[in-house]
């Protein structure tokens, strides 16, 4: 009995660990459905909703990669301590922003449209958020880790606007006049 429980426990861990190519659409579909269920659940407080939504989505996002891309060439000049400091600050910022957007949720529907393999190690998953008066395109960008079949999200495009690109631009503008320490602080 105990063996079974442990096995099931481990299997669920592995499942939430990374997404494989053939499962991307299925996984994202179920994750998005779960988030919508959480958001529609009237018994949960706002805080609980936020926590649970983040927990559902966490395993597919590669926050460190997002942090790295958004910092661009500057990343290589950082010490490993600075890298991890920046990555965790960035992760907090992204999560905070995501949670903030969730607050705007007003019974919109989400439809996953299609999966496109743009390169050997890139996949984009197109979805649409259908609200009462407007629709928005959301594209999840996945990349494959070298030599693994594990796929992670490295960027999200909202109506054609790349989150990572936008941060990248902002950070590079910021660093033109200010120091890395100040950037870390402002995050």
């Amino acid at each position: 009995m105990l063996k079974k429980i442990i096995l099931i426990f481990l299997l669920t861990i592995i499942n939430s660990y990374a997404v494989q190519e053939q499962n991307i659409q299925k996984t994202m579909d179920s994750k998005i459905k779960k988030v919508l269920q959480v958001l529609q659940n009237k018994n949960l407080s706002l805080k609980q909703k936020e926590k649970q939504s983040i927990r559902i989505m966490d395993s597919v996002f590669d926050y460190k990669k997002m942090a790295q891309i958004s910092l661009g060439r500057k990343w290589k000049t950082l010490s490993s301590k600075e890298k991890s400091q920046f990555a965790s600050a960035f992760e907090k910022k992204i999560k905070h922003s995501y949670v903030d957007k969730l607050r705007l949720y007003n019974n919109q529907r989400v439809i996953i449209k299609k999966l496109k393999k743009t390169k050997k190690n890139r996949i984009s998953l197109e979805s649409t958020i259908i609200g009462k008066s407007d629709t928005y395109d959301v594209v999840y960008q996945f990349y494959k880790r070298a030599n693994k079949n594990d796929w992670y999200i490295y960027d999200v495009r909202l109506s054609g606007v790349s989150i990572v690109q936008t941060y990248r631009k902002q950070f590079s503008d910021f660093l033109k006049t200010k120091s890395f320490k100040q950037l870390l602080k402002s995050l």
Partner: peptide
């Protein structure tokens, strides 16, 4: 909510606008 993501509002909105237009 969008504004909260900005470090500096003007270039942020400018960049979002131009990116959106490119994709449109």
């Amino acid at each position: 909510s969008i504004k909260k993501d900005a470090l500096d509002l003007y270039p942020f909105l400018r960049d979002i606008y131009e990116q959106k237009r490119v994709s449109d």
